[in-house]
Simulated assay, not measured.
Amino acid sequence: MTGICSGRVAVVTGAGRGLGRAHALALAAEGAKVVVNDLGVGLDGAAETDGPAQRVVDEIRALGGEAVAHGGDIATTDGAASLVTTALEAFGRLDTLVNNAGFLRDRMLVNLDEDDWDAVMRVHLKGHFLPLKHAAEHWRAEAKGGRTPQARVVTTSSGAGLLGSVGQGNYSAAKAGIIGLTLVAAAEMGRYGIQVNAIAPAARTRMTEHTFAETMAAPGEGGFDAMAPENVSPLVVWLGSAASTGVTGRVFEVEGGRITVMEGWRPGPTADKGARWSPAEAGGAALGLLAASETPRPVYGTR
């Protein structure tokens, strides 16, 4: 380990299991003191009785690191604000926020209940916005006080947010929204020393191991486990460190040993009449432009 995060304090949401746990352990291994947040709920967001956040804290401490547990609901104002308070009270500072918490309620759109839509939007999108807002308020106050931070935020989108995923309309919409939030936050917050980037990871977690069972299966003995969540964490650690200075407003797809910079929406073929089109003319122009454009990547779950 290089100690790339030595002296830094990181908050990781949804860090009791899966990707969040891997991120928390990796940050601690590189010298960060970690606030491990997890509400302790099931895959669908229903309450559970165990305490996964404290178990990860115990793992970090057993390895010689420093960590504290936070069991608040980060999709509430009080819960999100207390993330910052916990970091300051336990370790005296906050440098990195990794927004990772989420769960699934998958249905085809015609079968998707309003409550399932709202619940997924709440944990993924609101659960990104509120911690980001409260951390940014703290860092802005630091900057205005003459103590410009080297603050880092890593948000968690998904291939579903980039391309869509059949049976996951709520999740796909929330994850696409996170990308929009990331881009705006990076543009607004740079003046305060805050960098904001997104990852779109593919890894074996509670949310993927059954839905994509064949893809997520572990290899035989001795093979590279490409879907292990620990493969995603090195980039998260780097983005959360001072070493990533100058990198902001970017989206990275991360899977196994592969890192890809996602380039998003860019203008493709264009036609300009210089005057108003008729519907027939607009349709003809659109068909010509589509013929000259690149074929979109398919939505996940289609052939």
Results as ranks from 00 to 15, higher is better:
145 G>Q: 00
111 N>M: 11
141 A>D: 15
200 A>I: 02
161 G>T: 10
197 N>F: 01
109 L>H: 11
165 S>A: 10
146 G>L: 05
153 V>L: 05
159 G>Q: 12
145 G>Y: 00
164 G>T: 01
160 A>H: 01
175 K>I: 06
194 I>T: 03
195 Q>A: 13
153 V>H: 04
184 V>S: 15
152 R>H: 09
159 G>E: 13
155 T>E: 07
148 T>D: 03
186 A>R: 12
181 L>N: 08
190 G>Q: 06
135 A>F: 15
161 G>W: 01
122 R>D: 13
162 L>W: 04
117 W>I: 05
187 A>H: 12
197 N>H: 06
189 M>A: 10
200 A>K: 02
193 G>R: 03
185 A>S: 13
166 V>F: 06
148 T>Q: 13
193 G>M: 07
199 I>D: 03
110 V>Q: 14
152 R>E: 06
176 A>N: 07
195 Q>K: 07
115 D>W: 06
194 I>C: 08
129 F>R: 10
163 L>K: 06
160 A>M: 09
172 S>V: 08
162 L>P: 00
148 T>E: 12
114 E>S: 13
134 H>I: 06
117 W>D: 09
174 A>Q: 01
137 E>M: 10
164 G>D: 05
132 L>W: 10
170 N>W: 06
130 L>R: 09
157 S>C: 11
117 W>G: 10
199 I>Y: 03
118 D>T: 03
160 A>V: 10
159 G>T: 12
151 A>K: 02
167 G>K: 04
117 W>C: 09
133 K>P: 07
172 S>D: 10
132 L>R: 02
180 G>N: 12
133 K>V: 00
198 A>F: 00
134 H>Y: 15
186 A>N: 04
195 Q>C: 07
112 L>P: 11
168 Q>V: 00
171 Y>W: 00
144 K>L: 15
155 T>W: 03
143 A>M: 07
115 D>F: 02
165 S>E: 08
161 G>M: 08
126 K>D: 13
186 A>Y: 11
145 G>V: 00
130 L>I: 08
189 M>T: 09
197 N>M: 03
158 S>K: 00
106 D>F: 12
123 V>Y: 07
148 T>L: 13
191 R>L: 10
109 L>A: 14
199 I>M: 04
184 V>N: 15
196 V>Y: 10
185 A>V: 09
169 G>N: 08
132 L>M: 15
108 M>F: 15
139 W>K: 06
107 R>Q: 14
202 A>G: 12
188 E>G: 06
134 H>E: 11
110 V>S: 14
133 K>N: 12
135 A>H: 08
194 I>E: 07
137 E>G: 15
132 L>S: 13
116 D>C: 05
188 E>Q: 14
180 G>Y: 01
129 F>S: 08
202 A>Y: 10
183 L>T: 15
156 T>P: 05
118 D>M: 03
147 R>A: 14
126 K>F: 05
108 M>K: 10
155 T>C: 13
184 V>Y: 11
196 V>I: 09
187 A>V: 12
182 T>L: 01
149 P>W: 04
141 A>C: 03
173 A>Y: 09
204 R>E: 03
146 G>H: 00
120 V>W: 03
125 L>N: 01
176 A>C: 10
136 A>E: 03
183 L>M: 15
194 I>L: 12
133 K>G: 09
119 A>C: 09
139 W>N: 02
120 V>N: 04
153 V>W: 06
157 S>H: 02
187 A>P: 00
